[in-house]
Simulated scan of single mutants.
Amino acid sequence: MSRTHQPIWRRAALPSAVLCLTLAALTGCSSGASDPAGNKHAAAGTESGSDAGKGAPAGARSDATTDPEQAAPPQQVSIPSIGVTSSLLRLGLNADRTVQVPPADKGMTAGWYTGSATPGEQGAAVLIGHNDTRFGKAVFHDLRKIRKGADITVRNTLGKTSHFTVTGTESVSKKAFPTDKVYGRTTARALRLITCDGAFDAQGHPVNNLVVYATLR
């Protein structure tokens, strides 16, 4: 993120029916307005046009549920090794099918993308957070410091806590975002954390995304 507040993700391609789990054609999305109270951002690290990428697969969210408590929406994420504790906003899609992210004035709050799996269920659950905003450092500013084996805990609205172990991290170009790896169907009970990373381009946009991969203990 630049000091003048740039979006986490500028443009993306998303399936038009990602929330109802049907296969759909990918639709290109342009960058949203920079209104700090409700700016629009695109999906994690994917861009259209010259920075084309594939959007989150429509089947990314699993409908398999074995534990009613586990299926409750997530409420809080904690990463003790880097001193992060945050409540979780619910992030869906904007009217133009771009993925919502936390508004800049809530930069210290992460969000759960509701089109992904519920943390602890089968599938890939995706949490999104800013690196920084025009208001300063944000919730995932130190995410690059996380190490393999670190603990991430997610507490749901019923008070049940799930522990995830970090299995790896990668900084990826927004021009070659590993969409299937991040959003694709998986039999694992997986967690992905995403924020901006890397140097800035001439327009002040971070050129990379940082992805943290974790699995349920």
Rank of each mutant, 00 (worst) to 15 (best):
Q76P: 02
S81F: 05
R11M: 11
Q6E: 14
Y113S: 02
V182Y: 07
T85C: 04
T118W: 06
G107L: 04
D67T: 01
T153L: 07
C29W: 01
S31E: 12
R10V: 14
D105P: 00
I152M: 11
S34I: 03
Q122M: 10
A124R: 10
G159E: 06
G28P: 01
H163G: 11
P103G: 00
T215F: 09
P103W: 01
T46M: 07
V99P: 00
A37L: 03
H163C: 12
D35G: 00
T195D: 01
V77M: 14
A202Y: 06
R90E: 14
K160P: 04
L191R: 03
A60K: 09
D197Q: 11
A12G: 15
T133Y: 02
G123K: 06
G111S: 07
D201K: 04
G49E: 06
K181W: 07
P15L: 02
I128T: 03
T118G: 00
D51L: 10
S30T: 09
Y183H: 14
L127N: 08
S34L: 12
A95P: 01
Y113H: 12
G123P: 05
T215G: 07
P74C: 08
V84N: 09
R147K: 15
T22H: 06
P15Y: 05
S48H: 06
T46N: 15
T22L: 07
P206V: 03
A125L: 06
D105N: 12
G136T: 04
T65E: 13
Y213M: 09
Q70F: 03
K54S: 12
A64M: 05
I82Q: 06
G149D: 12
A71N: 08
R185V: 11
K148N: 15
Q6M: 13
K40W: 03
S62W: 13
A24I: 03
A56N: 06
R134L: 14
P7A: 12
D96H: 04
A124P: 09
T4Y: 08
V166H: 09
V77N: 01
I128P: 02
G107Q: 02
R3H: 09
Q100S: 06
P80L: 08
T167M: 13
Y183Q: 04
T66P: 00
A176M: 09
L23E: 13
G32N: 01
S81H: 07
L143V: 09
G204L: 04
T27N: 08
G184D: 10
D63W: 08
L143E: 12
T133W: 07
G38W: 02
T22P: 00
Q203H: 07
L127A: 11
I128G: 00
S2M: 03
T22D: 09
K54D: 13
E69D: 15
T114L: 07
A64V: 11
R144M: 11
T153G: 05
T109P: 02
W112K: 05
A52W: 14
S173Q: 12
T114A: 05
